[in-house]
Design a protein around this nucleic acid. Structure first.
Length: 327
DNA sequence: CATCGATGTTGAG
DNA sequence: TCAACCTCGATGG
């Protein structure tokens, strides 16, 4: 379920609580028994995210590649230091909103609206498309619940993976090969070269821009929500062929993705609306249906012009857009 | 409590 | 183009 921002947050969680530690690796469900045996006992030496893929590096040159697909999720438990998470409305997003600038958590929230990371404490944290924290008491390590494909366990922290699309052990060369097939991820590479690569990839294809934004070989990390929202924010007709976009339109799309991904990683939420009043900010944080311009709003009035938002299947995914604003 | 649907990708046909 | 993968929150009775 997660788009790029959640995967970065999960990688960050591993960096905090697992990197530098020897890890017991098992597969309670059994489907990853061989891979678990390969990794068991090794020290985790790195955790990186590229688009929707995460790579955990272990000593000896072995990597664990995980893709959560549509169902996948990680459950952390133990002495963990949780990421800053926007809890409620404190500040206003619009205050320091310049496109292309990544908002820091400090920009986004006032007191009490952020649970900051701080010292490790005993907690459970569910990480998928959204995150849920549970401070109630539990035994450590917890009994595996359901089909746990992989359990990673240190002296103090536990991480259970369930429902992934991909979970495999790779060599460094194989990791490089996977990454080579992916378009740029702004959090890994926000260079002019990365931007040029995306612009060129879009402008040489005749496929509709709505399809190209979802194509992980063009640009990494965009899913169905960010796709719809990026196109609305650019006031672009989703069916415009890539090669019909101007260079500037392509650059603006990339810059806006840089911005939105930064907001997503900072807040843990796919917040795609700017300049919200305090009341709207409260509503947006409380309900995902108040968080977007067009996503999941078929038939409802466009927030800008009132025209009913349209929905159509494109490559088996629901595409949402405003037929008036995005003409 | 049953059913539906999802923020993804792969591979068969 | 479409089913399969595989899990769980949201929804409705």
């Amino acid at each position: 379920m997660p788009e790029g921002h959640s995967v970065h947050r999960i990688a960050r969680q591993f960096a905090r609580n697992f990197v530098g530690h020897a890890v017991r690796v098992s597969s309670p469900q059994g489907r990853f028994a061989d891979g678990a045996a390969l990794l068991n006992g090794r020290v985790m030496t790195g955790a990186i995210a590229v688009g929707k893929q995460m790579f955990l590096e272990f000593e000896g040159g072995l990597w664990l590649r995980v893709h959560l697909g549509i169902y996948g999720a990680w459950d952390f438990a133990g002495e963990i230091s949780t990421d800053a998470t926007i809890r409620s409305a404190g500040g206003r997003m619009g205050q320091t909103n310049h496109r292309g600038t990544v908002l820091g958590v400090d920009d986004l929230a006032g007191e009490d609206s952020v649970r900051s990371m701080g010292a490790p404490r005993r907690a459970r944290l569910h990480m998928a498309e959204s995150e849920k924290e549970d401070d109630s008491d539990f035994a450590f390590p917890p009994d595996p619940v359901g089909a746990v494909r992989v359990r990673l366990l240190t002296e103090t922290a536990c991480a259970d993976l369930r429902g992934p699309t991909a979970c495999e052990v790779l060599t460094v060369d194989e990791v490089s090969a996977v990454i080579a097939r992916l378009g740029p991820d702004p959090l890994d590479d926000d260079s002019p070269a990365a931007e040029d690569r995306v612009v060129a990839a879009i402008r040489k294809k005749s496929a509709p821009i709505a399809l190209l934004l979802m194509d992980q070989s063009v640009v990494s990390g965009i899913g169905n929500v960010y796709r719809a929202e990026l196109l609305f924010r650019a006031r672009l007709d989703p069916f415009t062929p890539g090669r019909a976009l101007t260079e500037q339109q392509c650059r603006d799309l990339w810059r806006d993705w840089v911005y939105l991904l930064g907001v997503g990683v900072a807040t843990g939420q796919m917040m795609t609306m700017d300049d919200l009043s305090s009341d709207d900010w409260v509503r947006a944080m409380a309900s995902r249906d108040e968080r977007h311009w067009v996503y999941h709003r078929a038939g409802e009035p466009c927030r800008v012009c009132g025209t009913p938002i349209r929905m159509q299947l494109l490559a088996n995914r629901k595409l949402y857009w405003c037929p008036a604003c995005q003409a």
